[in-house]
């Protein structure tokens, strides 16, 4: 396992360099101009040239990239274009903790509901309970999050009008601010998790040792919960990886619609403003978190099933 960690650590710099390079090149070629975004649509050629020079954007692209990379090596993420002169590290630092907390809450919520529902449905495949349970999960899954948010807000407003307790519909800072985003974020990934859990459970059940156990006359439920569940643990673990990915992607929409100052929110705003130093850094951070999560799931595989060899 140490070997695995060591191997992953070695590949880290390559991943970071290639990510920053691709982001940089795409950003460099993408249309839209950070300086124009700053000027707010006004055209003043002199001001334009001045700003372009002061941000080093009149340099050839290799120089711009090398500048960025050498800064990165010194632990300097550079300065934001939009928040003129403000260090990127300063901008994204608080965003990381906000997104992590929100993401973990949503992940916990969706796992705690999604896995049992999926197991429950998988144990009784094609039963009425299976169908109804899965249909509900799928419906939650297929409602676009902005529609779900609209509905939640409408209900909340009706509560407010009648003097009943209501929730803040956006913002961040108070505990009540968590409820709606977590519900929205969890409900989409819940469906995903339930369904993948169900199919894993089905696939484990049709494995031969389960059938052998059945043939040996073992009592049905015991077979399921002792043999099958233990063996389904591994595929279920694999669900966690994608569901983290799911929560990360979902955060882009949810953070934006609820004005939550997390990484997803900052990234989208930065992309719209062409604030490349911020885009670069959020991308690197997302990549690192994906790497970390993958490492953890791989380590879990090895812990659960020692036969699994993971290349690293």
């Amino acid at each position: 396992m140490l070997k695995l960690i060591a191997k992953r650590l070695v590949s880290l710099p390559f991943v970071v360099i290639s990510i920053t390079f691709i982001t940089f090149i795409v950003g460099y070629m993408a249309p839209g101009d950070p300086i124009l975004a700053m000027l707010g649509g006004r055209t003043d050629p002199a001001a334009y040239e001045r700003l372009k020079h002061s941000y080093g954007l009149d340099q050839p692209w290799q120089d711009q990239y090398l500048d960025y990379l050498s800064g990165l090596l010194r632990g300097d993420l550079g300065l934001s274009f939009r928040f003129q002169g403000r260090p990127v590290a300063d901008i994204i630092a608080s965003g990381i903790s906000v997104s992590t907390a929100l993401g973990l809450a949503a992940l916990a919520g969706s796992l705690v509901i999604g896995i049992p529902v999926g197991l429950w449905a998988g144990v009784h495949p094609n039963s009425k309970r299976d169908r109804v349970g899965m249909a509900l999960m799928l419906m939650l899954y297929s409602i676009p999050s902005f529609v779900l948010i609209g509905l939640l807000r409408w209900f909340n407003y009706q509560f407010y009008l009648r003097g009943l307790p209501s929730l803040p519909v956006a913002g961040w800072g108070r505990p009540e601010h968590w409820i709606m985003p977590v519900i929205v974020l969890a409900s989409a990934s819940m469906g995903y998790i339930a369904r993948l859990t169900r199919v894993s459970m089905l696939e484990v059940q049709r494995q031969d040792y389960i059938r052998t156990a059945h043939a040996k006359g073992l009592y049905n439920r015991r077979v399921l919960w002792t043999h099958a569940l233990r063996n389904a643990a591994l595929p279920i673990l694999t669900v966690i990886g994608p569901s983290i990915a799911f929560v990360v992607t979902g955060a882009f929409v949810v953070e934006n619609l609820f004005s939550i100052p997390g990484i997803g929110f900052l990234s989208v705003q930065a992309i719209q403003q062409r604030d490349y130093p911020v885009i670069q850094s959020t991308t690197v951070i997302l990549a690192l978190s994906v790497l970390l999560m993958n490492l953890i799931t791989d380590m879990l595989y090895m812990a659960v099933d020692p036969r699994v060899r993971v290349e690293g």
Partner: peptide, 30 residues
């Protein structure tokens, strides 16, 4: 497994973290 696995998983990690929105903007414009 082996080198192929390393290459594919790293590529996947990288592309997953990549801002798809930015890529879409670029592709649409280009």
């Amino acid at each position: 497994g082996g080198l192929l696995d390393v290459l594919v998983t790293r590529l996947a990690d990288m592309l997953f973290a990549f801002p798809g929105l930015l890529l879409a903007i670029l592709v649409a414009a280009a």
